[in-house]
Structures are given as structure tokens and as C-alpha cells.
Design a protein around this nucleic acid. Structure first.
Lengths: 316, 316
DNA sequence: CATTTCGGTTAAGTATCACTTGAGTGAAGG
DNA sequence: CCTTCACTCAAGTGATACTTAACCGAAATG
């Protein structure tokens, strides 16, 4: 009959029993005798002042109160278990889990994995591709690489990795029809709106201004998602002002070309993120160091083939 | 050095210590001596194989591992505590927490609260206005009243409360300028798009068809949110086809009028929801019964002043 | 600079509680 | 009808969580 927390072992006994819907199996899982488990449940029910299970003769059913208690206890013990495993992994200097967006993982990270494995053969690197914003202080992910801008969250260690740029892209076929920068004045434009919120804006009017071309009509298809805009471009619908990082794959395959300067630097960039304090853990430090190295190499490489012109840019 | 779960009491000791950042205070909270707490933490660290606190001489700091473990254990014990309190409340037949949307709470529920208090003076009714979809099986909310359509979630008990209707509404001034149904053919229309997904559709074309009026051009302002559309209507921008439940307040105040039939019934409706099984708990049953009663009375009342014409409707 | 104070630690002793054993119960199932 | 199975009960035991009391070292105090 107490509102105070019951003994935790009794709660765990209940959680296990509710999960198995059997005292027998629950007792087996906890490595105790059924009698012990029965007693624990009973003491919990005394604490609560009401039964949690209806004892059928060869089975048990949850009561209303039991049904309310079960999901919460399950959540609770799962959280505790996850936390414990996460803490345990801190001492494990042999593995490292990194999450990044699918595009970045596939086009940037995966091809370089062998290089990392060679440099750090003792570290097992696990990749987790996904856009969901994982909570680095609460999950088993050590490092996140995310694209974004704005102030760094204070509870995280953050380091800028890569700038990103937007530049006109089109199919080679489209490029033949519009061989000069000026000919873009008549090309069908594809607008991708999820980068418009950036400041300075990285949209077509901004690019025309930066290119020294006269403003034109800004009609054309508008997409709110980058991959849709690139899909449309791939199908020959027009010329898109796309983020280089999203399109590297298609540029490399020759399905898209980016013949015209300037490229506009977006304010947003790729960032290395980990829980503040964990940047000194050996595997994380090693990975960060390696990443920065790779970024530097890649930058050299890219300025070679003149895809991007860093000098031409920076509208304010 | 074990990956197995540590003793739960030790985990709780750690959680409390991490929250207070002081063994002394943590011991006080748990009603034990500092020595006991110190020992618990020590045993936990042995289990983990690494220290969780750095012992400064008059203070403690978390280690890396401690920083990883702390938030998860906090979450876990909070979940357990919430679950326990929720289970405890099941036996508490004296209070009842209900969540509903802000509009429904303000215009429908709140004015009738006194009636409920008179009918059930022993039940303390708590209201929680908000649109967030609370999880009735995991939180301390007993009952939700939500607007929606589609199949009922299987883990919930669900009962239809109120149909909703859409009918043309405008300011009295606008109604003077458009005194007949037919005159709506030239009135400025306001479109509210969040009800279009309903099947059968409840948009202006459907209403004109149901009214036996000729189709017209469907230009006019379009809003994705109902309150914006009603705001525009209130400012005299045109005639809106709005859900009655959203506008009752303005209709009652005379700021809007709804002179023209028919009213179209939407497929969506207000529903009473609670965790399956808990519909038999006395306060919940009492509240449900009272709600149904109130709904019946309101229906009588509304058909009085001829706001809605249930016979005229049902396009398929 | 000595002294106090405070927060944490250690070690030994103790009370509690979680568990086991073994017998018991009542209904489902052959 | 008798067996079996899942849970319960009571008594005894062992682990564990806790207390007491002494100890330690740095920060605060005079």
C-alpha cells in the first residue's frame, strides 16, 4: 500500500514474469526456483496493495494493474540494460560504432574503410547508416557524422569536417544543349528547396548573381527533398543547383556533369560529433585523426579536377 | 568485468550519486549511511572493471564510463518509477486524468466540468490539454479524447463519441452580402486542406454537389491548418467550409454564422480512448457514461437550432 | 601554520532479504 | 480416476546490504 518504490528485485521478477507470462519460465531466466519468484511477486503485490496476476490453476493472467505496470517496467529495465552495456563498451578499446547518413556512408566512408582498417588493425569499426538523430549520450553509438549548421550542441564534442558546395549539375546530354554558362538563362531549372533556409541562401537567384548573369524567370519544378531533385535531373528534366556531397556518386559515374563555376559554399557542413569527454578515448581519437587526414587528402584531390572553385564564391 | 547486469541496488546507488554528484547527499536520499553507498559504488565499479567516479578529496567527478552510464540509469529508474506510480493509480478510484485537444477541452469539456463534478463528487478529474499522442499504456493518463478516423488501434478500447460536420461559415457581414445559398457561387471561397484527405472528401466541390449547385471556379485562399482558415474567415476574407467542432465558439459568440445547409458529415469523429481493459475501472466507466450522456444531450440541442441537418447529407 | 571540518573510505559485525528445499494444492488432461 | 503441471506455503539457510566506528586527506578557518 505504499507509494514508495518497491524492492527492485521484486520489480525485476515481475517484469520477467510478465514478459514470459509464466512464473516457471521467468524463474528459469532469473536462475531461481519458482518458489522464490512466487514469493517476490507476492511481496510486490503486498507493496502495491492489489494483485498483479490472476492465478489460474495452470496459468497466470495479468490484472488491470499488472497490465499497467508491465510495459513501463519493461522499458525501465531495457534502459538500464542498455546503459550498462554502453558503459561496459567504454572500456572496450577494440571497437567503435559510427553513424552517418546513407549517402555519406556509401560514397565517402565505405570506400575508405580499408584504409582505416590498415591504419588501425586493432579497432573493429562498425557502421550504422541512418538519418535518425541518435542521442550520443544515451545509445551505444560512439561517433556521428552529420550534415548541418548552427551552433554546436553544448553536450557534444563537435568538429567541422567538410564544407559543402552547390553548383549547377545536369546530364551530359543537357550539357550539350547548354554548352556555356550564359546558355543557362534559357535552360529549364530545377529548384531544391531544402537548402533555401541556409543563410546566405544557396538558390538559383543567388547563383546567377554570383555568376554575374542577369536574373531570369525562376519557374521550374520545385522539390523539397534533395534526392528527388537529383532524380528529376538524372531523367533529363533540367539543371539543378545541387549539393556536391549528394551528387559525387553520379558525377563519378558520369551520369551528371558540373561544368560551370562558381560553386557556392553552403554555411552548413559535415561535422564529427561525439559525447563531450569521449573525444579522448583512444579509438575515437584515432578515428577522428584519421577522418581529418582523409578530408585533407580528398580536398587536395577535388581541387585538382576543378570541380569546385573556392576563390570565386562567398556572397554575403 | 562482467557483461551481466550488476545488482540493481548498486545501480540505483550510482544513479542517485550521479544525480547529486555527492555520496553524502545520495546516501541521505536513500536513507542509508555514506559508508553503505560508498561500498555499493565500489562493488559496481568492480562489476564493470573500471572506476565510475574520480574521487577528489572533497568531491567526486564522473569518469568517462560514469558519464555514459548516468543518463541511461536515470531514464531507466524514471521509467520504473513512472510505471509504479501508474500501477498504483489503478487502485486509486478517486482521480482520473483525461487528455483532449485544446479546442475540445476549452469549448466542450471545460464548460461541462461542473456537471461531472456534481454527478461524481468523489472523483477528482484532471484535464490535460494537448495534441501530442500520449501512450495510454505507458503514461499516467487514463483517458484520451481524440479526433480521427481509420481503424481503432487494437491495444486500446475505443468508442465513437461525436460525429463532426462541415458546413459553410462566414462573418455576419459576409452573410449579408451573400444572403442565399445560390449567391455562394460568386463568394470568395476559403479552402482548408487538412480535411481533404477524408473519404468521402469534404471540400467545396463536394459541398456544391451535395447542395445541388453548379460547379464554379475553385480559386481562393488555401490553408493547411484549420485555425488559420478560420482566422481568415473571421477577418472577412471569404466563406470557409469548416468543421463545426472547431467553430462552435465563434458561432456561439456570433462572430461567425452558418446559415446554409447541407452539412456534410466527415468520416472522422471524436473518440473516447483508454487502455483496453481499463474501461471497466469505476471512474473510467463513470466518465465514459457521463460523456455519452452529454453527447446525446448536445446532439438534441444542436438539432434544435438547425445548425446541422443530418438527413440531407452522405455523399458517397 | 595548526586546527577543524567535511566528504569519502575501510573493516568488522549484524540484520535483513532473497533464495532453497520439500511438502502441498487444485485444476487440466489423458 | 489418476497423473501432471504450475503455482503456493513454511521453515531453514546463506548471501547481501547495511550500520557502526575508526581513519584519511585536503580545503577552509582562525
Amino acid at each position: 500500500m505504499s507509494k514508495r518504490m518497491p524492492p527492485l528485485t521484486a520489480l525485476r521478477a515481475f517484469e520477467t514474469a510478465a514478459r514470459h507470462m509464466s512464473f516457471q519460465n521467468a524463474a528459469a531466466e532469473l536462475n531461481v526456483t519458482p518458489a522464490a519468484l512466487s514469493f517476490q511477486i507476492k511481496s510486490l503485490e503486498e507493496h502495491l496493495g492489489a494483485p498483479l496476476f490472476v492465478r489460474g490453476n495452470r496459468s497466470v493472467r495479468l490484472t488491470e494493474a499488472g497490465r499497467v505496470l508491465a510495459p513501463g517496467t519493461k522499458d525501465g529495465f531495457e534502459a538500464l540494460g542498455a546503459a550498462w552495456r554502453a558503459a561496459y563498451r567504454v572500456n572496450d578499446h577494440a571497437s567503435l560504432t559510427v553513424t552517418a547518413g546513407p549517402a555519406f556512408t556509401a560514397t565517402w566512408l565505405a570506400p575508405r574503410l580499408y584504409s582505416f582498417a590498415r591504419a588501425h588493425p586493432d579497432i573493429e569499426l562498425r557502421l550504422s547508416a541512418g538519418l535518425g538523430l541518435v542521442d550520443l549520450t544515451r545509445t551505444e553509438v560512439d561517433v556521428a557524422i552529420r550534415f548541418g549548421y548552427g551552433p554546436d550542441p553544448p553536450e557534444l564534442y563537435s568538429e567541422k569536417l567538410l564544407d559543402d558546395w552547390v553548383t549547377p549539375m545536369m546530364t551530359p546530354e543537357m550539357a550539350r544543349r547548354h554548352p556555356t554558362r550564359a546558355s543557362l538563362s534559357t535552360a529549364p531549372l530545377i529548384h531544391q528547396e531544402d537548402i533555401d533556409f541556409l543563410d546566405p541562401p544557396c538558390d538559383w537567384p543567388a547563383w546567377f548573381r554570383a555568376a554575374g548573369l542577369a536574373p531570369r524567370d525562376w519557374t521550374g519544378q520545385r522539390f523539397s527533398q534533395a534526392d528527388h531533385a537529383i532524380d528529376a535531373t538524372l531523367s533529363g528534366a533540367g539543371v539543378v543547383l545541387a549539393r556536391v556531397s549528394f551528387a559525387t556518386r553520379f558525377l563519378a559515374e558520369g551520369r551528371l556533369v558540373a561544368p560551370f563555376r562558381p560553386a557556392l559554399r553552403t554555411l552548413a557542413h559535415y561535422r564529427f560529433l561525439c559525447a563531450r569527454g569521449s573525444e579522448t578515448r583512444p579509438q575515437i581519437a584515432a578515428f577522428r585523426h584519421w577522418l581529418v587526414e582523409q578530408v585533407a587528402q580528398a580536398a587536395d584531390h577535388e581541387s585538382d579536377h576543378d570541380l569546385i572553385d573556392p576563390h570565386d564564391v562567398h556572397i554575403t
